[in-house]
């Protein structure tokens, strides 16, 4: 059962990914990428990661798409045609191959006796109830056990805002001057 749902979802994802990357019009590409995130969110849901699914839907399908669309309204609508690049294709295949080698060695998918389910993780589940008193274990790990990571994550978001403000200057602060000076350059 799980096999069929997962396999279908991932196959669907692969289909979306391929058609997104083959598309010439960027708009379609962005839209398919949003769809990719939505399907991925579904997959996360199937894999018991409800919080992740929620976030992926909001971020991947939401924020990322909005940002991409805003970008698209300023850039050429179509991609220049490219032939398959040999070296990158080779690199990507090698990476995939290496990972496959690694993965064939790993504990079986879903195996309850895998190390990751027997070290640290059980303590989170017990601790979440006894020491923190929060039923959502993800929340207790996120905000308490690994709260410092979350502080880091918040700072990353903050950094992104600072970076974007630095790069595209937020509101129409100084564009007029820049535009005028570039026009002067062209004139001179």
């Amino acid at each position: 059962m799980g096999f069929i749902i997962d396999a279908t979802l991932i196959a669907f994802l692969a289909l979306i990914a391929i058609s997104a990357l083959r598309r010439k019009r960027l708009f379609g590409m962005v839209m398919l990428s949003g769809a990719f995130s939505l399907v991925a969110a579904t997959l996360f849901l199937v894999l018991d990661a409800v919080d992740v699914a929620f976030t992926e839907a909001a971020v991947g399908a939401g924020i990322s798409t909005v940002l991409a669309l805003a970008t698209l309204s300023l850039v050429p609508a179509e991609e220049k045609p490219h032939s398959i690049a040999i070296v990158p294709a080779f690199l990507a295949l090698t990476t995939g191959l290496l990972l496959s080698i690694a993965v064939s060695d790993l504990p079986e998918f879903g195996a309850a006796d895998a190390p990751i389910h027997n070290h640290v993780a059980p303590e989170f589940i017990i601790g979440s109830e006894e020491k923190i008193g929060v039923p959502n274990v993800v929340t207790s790990v996120l905000a308490s056990y690994r709260g410092y990571d979350t502080l880091g994550e918040t700072v990353v978001v903050f950094t992104a805002a600072i970076a974007v403000l630095l790069i595209i200057g937020g509101w129409t602060r100084r564009e007029t001057e820049t535009a005028e000076s570039t026009e002067d350059d062209h004139a001179g």
């Binding site: 990661a49 992740v52 640290v120 989170f124 589940i125 993800v138 790990v141 996120l142 690994r146």
Partner: peptide
């Protein structure tokens, strides 16, 4: 396991 979820939440952000 909740830990990968937490890690990935961070990674998504």
């Amino acid at each position: 396991n909740p830990l990968p979820h937490v890690l990935i939440l961070t990674a998504i952000v």
